[in-house]
Design a protein around this nucleic acid. Structure first.
Lengths: 219, 219
DNA sequence: ACCTGAACACCGTTCAAGT
DNA sequence: ACCTGAACACCGTTCAAGT
C-alpha cells in the first residue's frame, strides 16, 4: 500500500503488457492488465487517461519498431523499391501483432511515431512529383491494402468455412490451391507487386486519364 | 409477462435492430438492443445463441442485399467488368454499414449468404481458366483491398491528425489535395481500376513469372 | 414456445484514503 | 507522486418462474 520507492508502472510498460495480452488472447481488459503488472486496476489511471490511450500507445510501440527497421525509407534504391519496402516492413510489423489490428481500426492516428511512418511514405511520393491529390489517393490505396492484408493475416487459416457442394469454386480454390498457412503472405506479396506496378504509371503522367489521379475515368 | 400471442422477436429483426444500433452508435450491447426491441435482455436468448451469432446475422443481412443488387455477378459484360462490379457492389454495401466492418473482422465467415457472395467471385475467376492457386490468391488480394477500403470509409474524415510542421508531406496532401469527404471513395475507385488491370495479366498467362500466381518473382 | 426478473461474474472509471 | 480498496454504472449470459 501507499507509494513505492520506485514506480511500478509507466505508460510504456503498461502499453507493452497490453500488447502482450492482445497477442495471447486477442484482447485485453484493465483488470487482466493490472493482474499481469501485479498492481490494482485503479493504479493504471495514474499513468494513462484510460483504455483508448493504451490502444494508441500500443500502435505507437509498433510504429517505433517500424521506424527502427533496416531499410525503412528513406534509404537506398529506386522509389518503387522504397514503396515496396515501406509497405512490406509496416505490414510485417502489424502482422506480428495481427490480433491487435482490429482494435486499432476506427481510431484516428494521433501519435507521433505512426504519423511519422505515414509521413515517410507521403514524402516519398511527393518527392516523385505527384501532386497533393495523387499523393493522398496513393497513400489511401496503399493504406487500405495494407490494413486489409494485415487483418487477413490475423484471420483464422480457414477464413471461409466452405462446403464442397455449396461453394465448389471457393472450396476448390481454398483446398486445392497448394497454399495453407502462407495463403495470406503469398497473396500480400502478389498484390503488392501489382500495386506498385500501378503506382509506376502515375509518376510518368499527371494527365486526367491516369487511374490513380481521378475517379471518373473508364476502365 | 408470459408468452405473447404473436412472438415479439425473430433472429432477423434482432439482427436488423443490432445493425441499426451499430450504424448509429458504432457498436451495440444486449441491454440497448433489448430496449430498442421493447423486450428484456434475456428474451433475446430464446432466438439467438448469443452476441457472436447476432454479429454473424448482421453480416448475413448485408450479404443478402449484395446478392439482390442489380448487376451482381454472374451477369452481363466481360469478366473484368464483372469483377469490378462484384467489388464495387460489395464495398458499397459494406460502406453503408461502415461502422460494422471492424466488428466483423476476425470472425470466420460461416453464413450461407456471405459464402455465396465469395463463391460468385471465385467462380468468375475459375471460369477464366485461373488455377486454384491463382484463384485463392486473387480472391485474397481483392478481399484484403475491399475490407481495407471499407474500413477506410468507416474511419473519420480526418484519419490522420497531422501538424503542418511535423508531417509536411502528409499534411499538404491531406489538406491541399482537393479531396474532403470523398477521399475514401475516390481512392477506392482508383485502386480498383489498377487492381483489375493487374488481374487482367493473369488471365493471359499462367507462367511462374506472373505476379499473381507466385511469391518469389522479382518485381 | 416465448417473455420476465433475479442473479452471476465480469467490465471501465472515479475517488477518497493511505504513504 | 503513486498505489489501494470501495463504489458506480455498466456488460453478457443463465435460469427458474410465469403464461
Amino acid at each position: 500500500m501507499g507509494r513505492p520507492a520506485t514506480p511500478l508502472l509507466s505508460p510504456e510498460n503498461i502499453c507493452r503488457a497490453a500488447l502482450e495480452l492482445v497477442d495471447e488472447w486477442g484482447d485485453f481488459t484493465l483488470p487482466r492488465l493490472a493482474r499481469r503488472l501485479k498492481v490494482s486496476p485503479s493504479s493504471i489511471y495514474h499513468h494513462v487517461r484510460g483504455r483508448p490511450e493504451i490502444i494508441n500507445g500500443m500502435r505507437s510501440l509498433i510504429s517505433a519498431d517500424v521506424l527502427a527497421s533496416d531499410g525503412f525509407p528513406p534509404g537506398e534504391g529506386t522509389w518503387q523499391e522504397q514503396v515496396v519496402r515501406w509497405t512490406r516492413i509496416y505490414r510485417t510489423a502489424l502482422a506480428q501483432h495481427a490480433k491487435a489490428v482490429p482494435i486499432f481500426v476506427g481510431a484516428a492516428v494521433t501519435d507521433g511515431a505512426t504519423l511519422e511512418v505515414y509521413e515517410r511514405l507521403a514524402a516519398l511520393l511527393a518527392g516523385q512529383g505527384l501532386d497533393p491529390r495523387a499523393v493522398i489517393v496513393a497513400v489511401s490505396v496503399i493504406d487500405s491494402y495494407l490494413l486489409g492484408s494485415a487483418m487477413d493475416a490475423a484471420s483464422p487459416v480457414l477464413a471461409w468455412v466452405t462446403q464442397p457442394e455449396e461453394q465448389p469454386a471457393l472450396h476448390g480454390a481454398l483446398h486445392r490451391g497448394g497454399l495453407a498457412g502462407d495463403r495470406a503472405d503469398v497473396a500480400f506479396e502478389a498484390g503488392l507487386a501489382g500495386l506498385v506496378a500501378n503506382l509506376q504509371a502515375i509518376a510518368g503522367s499527371t494527365t486526367p486519364a491516369n487511374p490513380l489521379s481521378g475517379e471518373d475515368e473508364s476502365l
